[in-house]
């Protein structure tokens, strides 16, 4: 039952997402390298290394998505 509720909630959430977004030809800004969620992976890696060795929390950060959405 609980699982069905979670699945229903997820589907509702994702279909809500369908109203958001842009057409494939409107991704000019999203395609810019500086608009990537992690625009500088090297800097992000260096930061993660410092914070990993100085704080009790590490990871949990993001990955790709968005972008040019070409093809």
């Amino acid at each position: 039952m609980k699982r069905i509720a979670v699945a229903a909630a997820l589907i509702a959430l994702l279909s809500g997402c369908a109203d958001l977004g842009v057409k494939p030809w409107q991704r000019d800004i999203l395609a810019q390298p500086e608009m990537q969620l992690i625009s500088d992976p090297v800097e992000a890696g260096l930061d993660d290394h410092i914070y990993f060795s100085k704080e009790a929390t590490s990871g949990g950060r993001g990955f790709g998505g968005g972008g040019c959405g070409c093809n």
């Binding site: 030809w25 991704r27 000019d28 395609a31 810019q32 040019c68 070409c70």
Partner: peptide
Amino acid sequence: FWASWCGPC
């Protein structure tokens, strides 16, 4: 159909 920002284009 193409755009200047599109790599494969």
